[in-house]
Design a protein around this nucleic acid. Structure first.
Length: 489
RNA sequence: UCCCCGAUAGCUCAAUGGUAGAGCGAGCGGCUGUUAACCGCUAGGUUCAAGGUUCGAGUCCUUGUCGGGGAGCCA
């Protein structure tokens, strides 16, 4: 009697003897044929459960089988037969109960719809539901697709560090990594103070005594590190956890999330945008091909029309417009009577409502906004010729070769840029932004020793998950979300 | 962090300032090759916490905690 996964048992030939092991979704009873129970058994290997039919002549029927409740664990032996309404089911010859559910009335997951808010409080159990099982399989599917996409195109996977000593990434608040005693942390002795004099409590913390001999944090981006590998291996990417200590309370932000950051040498912003578009389309294609069962569920129960939306994205070339042009579009919309809460002005960052308007209402599909004003973008982004919009037109100010990919429903899913490869321009930007240039010594070395044009982007993995599954809260597409005031599991 | 909304049975929600209810789920029984099953009965409550107003607070006020939506920060 072969132990089959449910996904295989559902495809096994009629007449085969099988064993399945899993958890009960539901039990339904009938008094027909002297009494029988229908056990819906799933093991997470696919969306569907398999139905096992247990008759009353099983020795443990009245004592165990007829008392099974949702998520009891069982081993079922039996024969594959055809269900009268189609599909495989198991005619059980034995049902072994491995674990019962204690106090079923208070078991958090009941055979009925639960709100996602409620399930978020039971993260250790929610993966047993249809929705979170499907999310988990999608997460695996997309993770593998990420690696396959890059591997097939000659990219090398680089493990950039989680702990970073550079305090200069400028991508937001960071989590401190330290082994110092937080209660009595060592402080720097004021210059000229006697060696045995007590150090004043307000003196700066002496990070020289910390584990790494300097101040360290959890990474907010692997980009600066991965650029070093790009400038030797040509095409590289990272895919790892990323940490932001921002007090963000939204459906799109996590304190710990996974980010994919490819970096390509001998490439400009256009090449970067082509890569981004191919990448997103590859993820969609893979999801539809490999997880049709889960995607059908998302389409029916999570977002009506999801499959149509994704198919449309697959078939439509992404629109590429300059930031300068996007401002003109928004100004025209305002002149036409469209109301926005925030004003639109060249030189300021677009608000969420503006981005949503562009991707959801005006272009009705993914949009790549390119060449932003340099004053609102990071120091490492390549400067365009002064006063140009990067598309051969003029702009009211200076721009840099940055891009944001906006998609309906999620908003910004990718942020990227061509990097400034000219040392003099890079230094000028670091200086004018008041950043500590000494800290960037190794990053600047890349421009001193055989510099090349290169570009890259960052894709928030959870945002890609939301885009592809239709799930509306980022906390529901990662197994154990970390957000302000929540790290229970 | 800011703005708005919310917290009542295991879950989802009702309840003019005056005896706390329903549906689902659970338990028991009936019916049935059932599959969002159906019918009947039963059990199940410190109404988020602490104060306050009132003869009387689930309901009104204050503070806090947690949750949701939106904004900012961004991916």
């Amino acid at each position: 009697m072969a132990w089959l996964r449910v996904v295989d048992a559902l495809k096994a030939p009629v007449g085969s003897s099988v064993t399945v092991k899993g958890w009960l979704r539901t039990r339904r009873d009938s008094k027909a044929e002297g009494g029988l129970s229908f056990l819906s058994v799933h093991d997470g290997t696919c969306f569907d459960a398999i139905q096992a039919v247990a008759k009353a002549d099983l020795p443990n029927y009245a004592g165990e089988v007829a008392k099974l409740t949702t998520h009891c664990s069982v081993e079922v032996d039996g024969t594959i037969v055809q269900n009268p309404k189609g599909g495989n089911e198991i005619q059980a010859t034995a049902v072994r109960v491995m674990g019962v559910v204690d106090d079923p009335d208070h078991y958090p997951i009941q055979p009925k719809p639960h709100s996602f808010e409620y399930l978020r409080e039971h993260q250790h159990l929610r993966v047993r539901t249809n929705t979170f099982g499907a999310v988990a399989r999608m997460r695996h599917c997309l993770s593998m697709a990420v690696h396959r996409f890059f591997h097939e195109r000659g990219f090398y996977y680089v493990h950039t560090p989680i702990i970073t000593g550079s305090d200069c990434e400028g991508a937001g608040q960071m989590f401190r990594v330290s082994t110092l005693d937080m209660v009595n942390c060592p402080r720097v002795r004021p210059e000229g103070a006697k060696p045995d004099a007590p150090v004043p409590p307000g003196a700066p913390v002496d990070f020289g005594q910390d584990f790494f001999g300097k101040e360290t944090h959890l990474t907010v981006s692997g980009q600066l590190n991965v650029e070093t590998y790009c400038c030797a291996l040509s095409r590289v990417y990272t895919f790892g956890p990323t940490f932001r200590a921002e007090n963000s309370n939204t459906s799109r932000h996590l304190a710990e999330f996974w980010m994919i950051e490819p970096e390509i040498a001998f490439a400009n912003l256009h090449d970067d945008s082509v890569l981004a578009e191919e990448f997103i389309k590859y993820l969609i294609r893979t999801s539809l091909a490999e997880r049709a069962d889960d995607m059908k569920f998302f389409d029916e129960r999570i977002e009506k029309g999801l499959l149509q939306r994704l198919t449309h994205v697959l078939e439509t070339p992404f629109v590429r417009v300059s930031y300068t042009e996007a401002i003109r579009v928004l100004e025209k919309a305002i002149a036409g009577g469209r109301k926005f809460e925030y004003p639109v002005k060249w030189g300021t960052d677009l608000q969420s409502e503006h981005e949503r308007f562009l991707t959801e209402e005006h272009y009705k599909g993914p949009v790549i906004l390119m060449n932003y004003p340099k004053q609102i973008k990071a120091f490492y982004m390549r400067c365009n010729d002064p006063g140009t919009d990067g598309f051969g037109g003029s702009a009211p100010g200076d721009t840099v070769a940055a891009m944001d990919v906006l998609v309906p429903g999620v908003g910004e899913i990718i942020g990227g840029s061509q990097r400034e490869e000219r040392l003099d321009r890079l230094d000028a930007r670091i200086t004018e932004m008041g950043l500590p240039i000494k800290e960037y010594w190794w990053y600047r070395d890349l421009r001193r020793y055989g510099t090349v044009p290169h570009a890259g982007f960052g894709l928030g993995f959870e945002r890609a998950m939301m885009f592809i599954t239709g799930m509306q809260n980022v906390r529901d597409v990662i197994p154990f979300p970390r957000v302000p005031k929540l790290a229970e599991f």
